[in-house]
Amino acid sequence: MKRLLAATALALSLLAPAAHAVQPDEILPDPTLEARARALSQNLRCLVCRNENIDDSNAPLARDLRILLRERLTAGDTDDQAVAYLVDRYGEYVLLKPTTHGANLILWIAGPAMLIAGIGIAVYANSRRYRRVALPPSPEVLSEQEKKRLDELMQQ
């Protein structure tokens, strides 16, 4: 009975939704601004955690980022201005989805380019290997005397 109760408690704890790290004192009184802040914070990376957004992180720096974002929105910044402020302050690493221009363009293109180059090198190396395989020697042309002898042997 104890095992069943423990298994049930474990299953329920695994099925429970993840608790968000946003503290009650951070929540803005204006529901529209709070919704904007939540939407923006889903795309901002916690600089302490690995690939976790600031909305879900319990790190003190993530809390500071959430508060700073809400301050910028309360001050009247647009969504783009608020995110740009955080990017200017902390760098593009703060974005969970990095931009595809500037120096990042090289990183976005490098992976597919290297894949295509690798496939090209493999195809070239394989074609060279197959060209090096020795072909069977071509049959030499028989002389008239050999042809006569072959015909005699075939008739027997």
Score class of each variant (00 low, 15 high):
2 K>H: 14
7 A>I: 12
10 L>K: 07
10 L>P: 00
14 L>C: 02
17 P>W: 03
24 P>D: 12
26 E>F: 10
28 L>K: 13
28 L>D: 00
33 L>S: 05
33 L>F: 04
34 E>V: 06
36 R>W: 03
40 L>A: 01
40 L>H: 07
40 L>K: 00
40 L>Y: 03
41 S>K: 10
42 Q>D: 04
42 Q>V: 14
43 N>E: 07
47 L>G: 00
49 C>K: 15
50 R>V: 11
54 I>G: 05
55 D>A: 09
55 D>S: 08
60 P>Q: 15
60 P>E: 04
61 L>A: 03
61 L>W: 07
62 A>K: 06
64 D>C: 07
66 R>M: 09
67 I>L: 13
67 I>G: 06
68 L>W: 11
68 L>T: 06
69 L>I: 10
71 E>K: 02
72 R>G: 04
73 L>M: 01
73 L>I: 06
77 D>P: 04
78 T>S: 13
79 D>Y: 03
79 D>T: 10
81 Q>S: 09
83 V>H: 06
84 A>H: 03
88 D>R: 10
88 D>E: 14
89 R>Q: 05
89 R>H: 14
93 Y>N: 14
94 V>Q: 04
96 L>R: 15
97 K>I: 12
97 K>H: 03
97 K>P: 01
98 P>A: 04
98 P>L: 09
99 T>R: 15
100 T>W: 02
101 H>P: 04
101 H>V: 14
102 G>H: 13
103 A>R: 13
106 I>L: 10
107 L>V: 09
108 W>K: 00
108 W>P: 00
110 A>F: 11
112 P>E: 15
112 P>N: 11
113 A>D: 05
116 I>M: 08
116 I>A: 06
117 A>Q: 09
118 G>W: 01
121 I>L: 12
122 A>K: 01
127 S>N: 06
128 R>P: 01
130 Y>V: 12
131 R>L: 05
131 R>V: 08
132 R>L: 08
133 V>D: 05
133 V>F: 01
133 V>N: 02
135 L>M: 11
135 L>W: 09
137 P>Y: 12
138 S>F: 08
140 E>W: 11
142 L>T: 05
143 S>W: 13
144 E>P: 02
145 Q>A: 07
145 Q>M: 13
148 K>N: 07
148 K>P: 04
148 K>E: 03
149 R>Q: 15
151 D>G: 07
153 L>G: 03
156 Q>C: 05
156 Q>P: 01
156 Q>I: 10
